[in-house]
Amino acid sequence: MPHGFDGAVLRVLGAKEHALTVRGVTRLAPHFTRVHFDAPTLFQQATDSPAAWIRLWIEDPMTGVDFQRAYTIAAADVSEARLEVDFLLHEPAGPASAWASSASAGDRVVAQSLGSTSFTPAPDTSGLVLIGDAAGVPAINSILRSLDPQMEVRVLLERSHEEDELIPLASHPGAVVSWVPRDGSGSLALAAAEILSPGTQVWAVGETGSLKALRPAVKERAAGNRKSIHVQAYWIEGRAMGKERRV
């Protein structure tokens, strides 16, 4: 596949391109779908760690442009070179959402692994709070599956639509889950302020505006060090995130 500038930069930095082939698709909720891939070479470079993510290059067939989007590895079987990626379907659909909504066995995309972050339990914390929204559920699920069953964890999720609550969440015996309706950028921060306490480890992902409002509450109430606080934007309301390249 021809490469644009961003793809070339990633290759210079050591991000090889890996072909992923669709094995099948499972609809997990009305607007949430899981794509199962064969990935014969990906795990020579990528790791299956909690909240790890990869870059997918998805072509817009109308324009001939490849769009790069980052997606969490929802599940993986490294020994079988297979992985699963969850896609939030939305309207108006972006290139990744449109592709996932019609994906079928045999379809192919290109993946790269470089710069992924992952979750690590912080030492000397009094508890864990996971904060996100529908787009962050795959990462939060991977974290929940990795935790000690004895750990107490609060999960706070912002919903833009009622059907967000139909997205399956990983089971954890110590998890308490609550949803808060999105009512502007401040609703998530208000809900978080009620459950954060000193010494809490906070892992938060979501919409940029919501996280901007959330940061002061995290800093004031959790009062943790940098290793115990992770806040990362996954999307921007009204804007597309990710790079593109001409093919």
Score class of each variant (00 low, 15 high):
residue 117 T to L: 12
residue 57 W to N: 01
residue 29 A to S: 11
residue 219 K to W: 04
residue 100 A to T: 10
residue 114 L to P: 04
residue 171 S to C: 11
residue 92 P to I: 14
residue 114 L to K: 04
residue 109 V to F: 03
residue 45 Q to D: 12
residue 2 P to N: 14
residue 217 A to H: 00
residue 42 L to W: 03
residue 199 G to T: 07
residue 46 A to E: 06
residue 155 V to Q: 02
residue 194 E to K: 15
residue 197 S to D: 02
residue 13 L to C: 09
residue 108 R to A: 05
residue 235 W to E: 01
residue 220 E to D: 15
residue 224 G to V: 00
residue 111 A to Y: 05
residue 72 T to Y: 01
residue 122 A to W: 03
residue 145 R to G: 09
residue 205 V to D: 04
residue 67 F to W: 08
residue 25 V to T: 13
residue 98 A to N: 02
residue 186 G to V: 09
residue 145 R to I: 09
residue 32 F to W: 10
residue 240 A to V: 15
residue 159 R to L: 13
residue 24 G to S: 10
residue 154 R to F: 04
residue 213 A to W: 09
residue 200 T to D: 01
residue 36 H to M: 15
residue 80 E to H: 12
residue 117 T to G: 12
residue 43 F to M: 07
residue 139 A to H: 05
residue 16 K to C: 05
residue 55 R to E: 09
residue 238 G to S: 06
residue 219 K to F: 03
residue 31 H to P: 05
residue 182 R to P: 03
residue 223 A to G: 04
residue 33 T to L: 13
residue 46 A to I: 05
residue 108 R to C: 03
residue 175 A to E: 08
residue 35 V to W: 02
residue 77 D to C: 15
residue 128 L to Q: 07
residue 64 G to W: 15
residue 174 G to I: 05
residue 94 G to W: 03
residue 99 W to F: 15
residue 161 H to P: 11
residue 6 D to F: 11
residue 130 L to Q: 10
residue 141 N to E: 06
residue 36 H to C: 14
residue 94 G to H: 01
